[in-house]
């Protein structure tokens, strides 16, 4: 093993460390800025210009205001419902689909696979989807955010590849012992592919947590809005009526800090889970790309 490090390499390594540090800062500062601003005093935030590199006159009053805001609370509840129900349905259907498609000697699997993969490359588009959802009678229901995205083809293929890598002898011997397909799937195949199941669960949950477009086109009652749509009204359309629901006096002074606090509250749960699943990412992303 040659351990001699040349002069040039040493300079390269130093530059590399610097570049990576600079890039990480560029990525993290906009986020930290929001967190610190949300923890600062509302009046200071109004006066302050530029980035917050530390909280100014630390206070959590903005979070207290967010916790009292009825629109944000119903948004949170709707999002929780959609994430839990949607992700459960996603996982069950994806497991079923990938199990069937990964079985050998099933005559129609080839046709099914072609039919499913085709939808990755050709879609009807927004308008026909809207009309379909309307025809099924889902508009103005939170199910419109769940059923039309009950599966994702990319995740299905990732899962199928994982299932196909389980040796055939395992499900076959279970079959001889008299287990049915459903039992084999949920008590043998799913535990054996749990790394992939974990990644896919994360993908689906993040998707549901962050999605807003379908909610915007399918829902018209504010009481059904998920958090992201409420966020859009507060942050991007600058609709202050939502915030004044927490009390008009709060609005006058604290609207900026409340905005920042809302962003933090809406983003933190996802960011809190992801480091635990990080070690599985490579696996999930890899498998999917190999057989896109």
């Amino acid at each position: 093993m040659n351990t001699r490090i040349t002069h040039g390499e040493r300079i390269f390594n130093a530059c590399n460390i610097m570049i990576c540090a600079l890039l990480s800062l560029c990525i993290i500062i906009p986020i930290i800025n929001i967190v610190f601003a949300s923890l600062s005093d509302p009046i200071e935030v109004m006066k302050h210009q530029g980035l917050f590199l530390r909280p100014i006159k630390f206070t959590t009053s903005a979070y207290a205001a967010v916790a009292k805001n009825p629109n944000i609370i119903t948004g949170y509840m709707n999002t929780l419902f959609i994430v839990v129900t949607g992700t459960t349905l996603n996982i069950v259907l994806t497991l079923i689909g990938s199990y069937v498609l990964s079985r050998k000697g099933v005559m129609f699997n080839k046709i099914f696979t072609m039919m499913i993969v085709f939808t990755m490359y050709f879609q009807g588009g927004t308008i026909p989807l809207y009309l379909t959802v309307q025809a099924v009678g889902l508009t103005n229901s939170r199910w419109a955010l769940i059923l039309p995205v009950a599966m994702n083809t990319f995740n299905l293929i990732v899962m199928r590849t994982a299932m196909a890598s389980v040796p055939d002898s395992l499900p076959e011997s279970a079959m001889m012992d008299g287990a049915g397909h459903a039992r084999i799937l949920f008590s043998i195949m799913a535990p054996l592919t749990k790394a992939t199941v974990a990644v896919i669960t994360l993908y689906y949950a993040v998707y549901h947590w962050n999605s807003w477009f379908n909610a915007m086109i399918f829902l018209h009652k504010k009481s059904q809005y998920p958090l992201q749509l409420i966020l859009r009204e507060i942050l991007i359309q600058d609709d202050t009526s939502i915030m004044s629901a927490g009390g008009a006096d709060a609005l006058a002074l604290a609207s900026d800090t409340i905005k920042y606090a809302t962003i933090v509250v809406a983003t933190a749960p996802i960011l809190a889970i992801y480091p635990f699943l990080q070690k599985y990412f490579v696996k999930g992303v890899m498998v999917g790309a190999v057989k896109g």
Partner: peptide, 29 residues
């Protein structure tokens, strides 16, 4: 041989038919 697998697959098939092929037919509008 595969009857039970096909039964298991019904919800998946319906999902793709309704929410992916439905809109494709809908393109006819």
């Amino acid at each position: 041989k595969n009857k039970s697998l096909y039964f298991l697959f019904i919800p998946v098939l319906f999902y793709y038919l309704i929410f992916h092929y439905g809109p494709m037919v809908g393109l006819l509008i």
